[in-house]
Amino acid sequence: MSLSSKDIVPLKEVRARFTALAEEVCTGREKIITRNGKAYVAMIDAERLDYYHQLERQSLHLRLLDEAEAGLNDIENGNLMSVAELKAAYGRDGSR
């Protein structure tokens, strides 16, 4: 959904029209709240926020799968390091 100039609202206007703005948000109109003329926060429907969080988790899982696949490819190609080499490369001596 694209934003229009009607969806950009100064913070002091939000204080006066919060309920009306919340009703607009519930119909799918996201709002960008400005403070001193700059983007400050956004108002979005709670269900859409849940959806955005779900997408974020899915993206994280896909990145983890890509990293796991890269690790398996390294193993298959013989790109291995010993524990001592890892500690030397990353400056860890094993103590905590």
Rank of each mutant, 00 (worst) to 15 (best):
M1L: 06
S2D: 06
S2W: 11
S4I: 07
S4M: 02
S4G: 13
D7K: 10
I8T: 05
P10L: 06
P10S: 03
K12P: 00
K12F: 09
E13Y: 04
V14T: 08
R15P: 02
R17Q: 12
R17I: 04
F18K: 14
A20W: 04
L21N: 07
L21F: 14
E24W: 01
E24C: 15
V25K: 07
C26P: 00
T27R: 15
T27I: 05
T27W: 14
G28F: 06
G28N: 10
G28D: 13
R29H: 12
E30Q: 05
K31H: 02
I32S: 02
T34N: 09
T34Q: 00
N36Y: 10
N36K: 11
K38C: 08
Y40E: 03
Y40S: 09
V41F: 05
D45I: 00
D45N: 10
A46N: 13
E47L: 04
R48C: 05
R48V: 09
L49S: 15
Y51P: 00
Y51I: 03
L55F: 10
E56C: 04
R57G: 00
R57T: 14
Q58T: 09
S59H: 12
L60K: 14
H61D: 15
L62S: 11
L62K: 08
L65M: 06
L65D: 09
D66I: 12
E67W: 09
A68K: 12
E69A: 15
E69Q: 12
G71F: 14
G71K: 09
L72C: 01
L72K: 03
N73D: 05
D74A: 14
N77G: 05
N79Y: 09
N79V: 14
L80M: 08
L80Y: 05
L80H: 04
M81D: 08
S82M: 00
V83G: 01
A84D: 07
E85T: 07
K87L: 02
K87C: 04
A88G: 06
A89I: 01
A89Q: 12
A89M: 12
Y90S: 03
R92H: 07
D93Q: 03
G94R: 04
R96T: 13
